[in-house]
């Protein structure tokens, strides 16, 4: 049972949050991961997420928003079910990162931070994701895909569209 009545989160997530706040000397420490985990479940950091997390951590909603707006992975608008994040930073750029990004734009028919009409995919150009030696690389949600070619991207997108892609959160 969650310590919060009427939690907006699933029982598992609520229980996880109950435990998370106990791990640190100061419970506010749970804020950043909690926002990310809440986003994983809800799809984005909604107002309701902000409210509940503020309550869980005894923070002002303003505090939560101050923090949430700082971190680039956190979003306040829904993304697609699969958020395709293409790295175009230097190592990827040198090995075709922009080509991959362009290909995704073309293939999905959407631009940076846009969502497909069927809400299955969203696209983001992101900064270095730490896969420089296997460039070009991208992440679909949290899963890395590297040494990309446009052909490989097509396969990856097709796999996700078919609901068979990895999606570990």
């Amino acid at each position: 049972m969650s310590t919060i009545t009427n939690s907006i989160f699933s029982p598992e997530t609520a229980a996880r949050f109950d435990r998370l706040v106990t791990l640190y000397p100061v419970k506010r420490s749970a804020l950043v991961p909690m926002l990310l985990y809440a986003q994983d479940e809800v799809g984005y950091v909604s107002d309701a997420v902000v409210t509940e997390i503020a309550e869980r951590l005894d923070l002002l909603e303003l505090d939560v928003r101050n923090v949430l707006s700082y971190y680039s992975m956190l979003r306040t608008k829904p993304a697609g079910k699969y958020n395709v994040q293409v790295c175009t930073n230097i190592s990827c750029m040198l090995r075709g990162g922009y080509e991959i990004l362009d290909h995704c734009k073309h293939k999905l028919g959407i631009g940076h931070k846009e969502v497909t009409a069927d809400k299955v995919f969203s696209l983001e150009e992101v900064e270095c994701i730490g896969a420089c030696c296997w460039a070009p690389a991208m992440q679909v949600n949290y899963d890395f895909h590297d040494n990309l070619t446009t052909v490989k991207v097509d396969e990856i997108l097709a796999t996700y569209r078919a609901g068979q892609g990895k999606d570990v959160k």
Binding site: S29, A30, V32, P33, L57, Y70, Y71, M73
Partner: peptide, 28 residues
């Protein structure tokens, strides 16, 4: 040992910003 996840901020790699982030604050 507690493992902790960030949420996207290069600046948090700076040690004092890292502490701020771990304390649930903006990574300044």
């Amino acid at each position: 040992i507690v493992t902790q996840s960030g949420a996207g901020a290069y600046e948090v790699g700076e040690e004092s910003a890292l502490m701020e982030s771990l304390e649930g604050k903006r990574g300044v």
